[in-house]
């Protein structure tokens, strides 16, 4: 009920007019699917290491306009997280300063809706950099893949417990899993799930 109001309030709070494009009209059938790799799971203290994103127009995943970059962490990357995402300190030598990276990302997404798997976390991570700087939170509409999947699955098994693990969803949707897990690759696979989910009534 208050959604549009809060959106306007948010827009009003923007403190840098160069980013007004975040509130402009977008091509109707376009979304951006994205994923991040981070040093940990706590948005308060962990940092983003890389962002991967692709645009989807209709049923086409625009790989030719993909987005991938690395962010310079403010503190040394710990051993535990290196083991998970396999981004070592040395891999970040050509990484960008967070502000520069986020600026590029914003220009890539514009006002398009964002799609992702457990998107809330990724958006929270972006907001961690974004909010203090531009005084607003990321205004883009958000589409949660596991939510889309759940809603279509529940039509077939109304009382069932639905397995929402990433690989399980990929498998259930009959999509090929390829390559290693990194931000861009996961974004690409998420994009496939999104396109597929747009095209099925129920699962």
């Amino acid at each position: 009920m208050f959604a549009s109001f809060f959106a306007k309030r948010n827009a009003q709070k923007l403190n840098d007019e160069r980013f007004r494009f975040l509130f402009e009209e977008v091509p109707l059938d376009e979304v951006v699917v994205f994923d991040t790799e981070t040093t940990g799971l706590n948005p308060k203290k962990d940092e983003i290491l890389s962002i991967g994103a692709v645009k989807v127009r209709g049923n086409t995943i625009l790989m030719s306009e993909k987005f991938e970059l690395f962010l310079k962490p403010q503190c040394e990357v710990g051993e535990c997280s290196i083991k998970i995402h396999q981004i070592r300190n040395i891999d970040l030598q050509n990484a960008l300063e967070p502000r520069e990276a986020i600026t590029q990302f914003l220009h890539f997404i514009g006002a398009r809706p964002l799609v992702g798997y457990y998107l809330e976390f990724d958006v929270a991570m972006i907001n961690k950099y974004f909010k203090p700087w531009l005084n607003i939170h990321l205004p883009n509409p958000q589409i949660e893949l596991s939510g889309l999947y759940h809603d279509k699955k529940i039509k077939r098994i109304p009382d069932g417990v639905i397995d929402l693990r990433f690989d399980v969803m990929m498998k259930e949707l009959g999509l090929p899993i390829f390559g290693k897990h990194d931000a861009l690759n996961d974004a690409m696979m998420s994009a496939m799930m999104y396109v597929k989910l747009q095209n099925v009534e129920k699962l």
Partner: peptide, 8 residues
Amino acid sequence: RAMNIAYY
């Protein structure tokens, strides 16, 4: 680099 993925 010029390729896209599409679903039909």
